[in-house]
Structures are given as structure tokens and as C-alpha cells.
């Protein structure tokens, strides 16, 4: 059996004005074939107008074990607007 064909992550922009969003992955030998395959597999029903393909090996991800330390802003409530007392008479701010 031949060598493993590289894995790519596929991102689609549904329409201009929106961000590209991850939709899935596929195997392809290079970026040209990855784009062709992504069009065939992920845009059969008008899902978008732009495709990005990224080699999966190029993605660096955060460690889920450190999600607590990284993403828990519980002790920094002063970052939220509701932390501050503004009198009603001042109106909407």
C-alpha cells in the first residue's frame, strides 16, 4: 500500500462579509488537489464562495488540560461593563 496521503483542514466562507469557518477535513497530495476535492465534497449545495485548505500538521492547538488557567476569567469581573455602577439618571451608557 502506498504512503499516507496528507490530511488537510477545510474552511468555507458562506458569503462575503462572513468569516471562513471550519467544515471538515480531507486527504490530498497537494494544495491544488485539496482545493478541488474540497469543492467537490464540501460545496455541493451552495455552501459557500471561498475555500481555504490548511495542512492539518500546520495547526498548533492549545492544551485542553489548561483550559481552566487559560480561559477562566472568573476573578477579573472588572473587565465586564456591568461591574461599574452608573446612576440611572445618566441614561444609557
Amino acid at each position: 500500500m502506498s504512503a499516507e496521503v496528507p490530511l488537510w483542514e477545510v474552511f468555507i466562507r458562506p458569503r462575503n462579509g462572513l468569516a471562513h469557518k471550519h467544515v471538515g477535513s480531507l486527504h490530498a497530495a497537494d494544495e491544488v488537489m485539496a482545493l478541488n476535492a474540497a469543492r467537490d465534497v464540501y460545496t455541493r449545495r451552495g455552501e459557500g464562495n471561498s475555500i481555504w485548505v490548511v495542512p492539518s500538521a500546520s495547526i498548533s492547538a492549545s492544551d485542553p488540560d489548561q483550559a481552566g488557567e487559560n480561559f477562566e476569567p472568573g476573578d477579573k469581573i472588572y473587565r465586564h461593563p456591568t461591574f461599574y455602577e452608573i446612576p440611572d439618571e445618566v441614561g444609557h451608557m
Binding site: 500500500m1 499516507e4 496521503v5 490530511l7 471538515g24 477535513s25 480531507l26 486527504h27 467537490d40 465534497v41 464540501y42 455541493r44
Partner: peptide
């Protein structure tokens, strides 16, 4: 039939996130 091929791909990709390779599954 083209859809079914696509569905196979989505599923193989989901399985690959668990550490099994496409090659292994094909074999």
C-alpha cells in the same frame, strides 16, 4: 451516490480525530 461518498469522507475524518488513520481503516 456522490453524496454517499462524501458522507464516508466526513465519517472517516471524524474517526481520524480519535487517533486511527484513514490507511488503517481502509486496510
Amino acid at each position: 451516490v456522490q453524496d454517499e461518498g462524501g458522507h464516508g469522507l466526513y465519517l472517516y475524518s471524524a474517526a481520524e480525530t480519535l487517533g486511527v488513520s484513514r490507511k488503517q481503516m481502509t486496510e
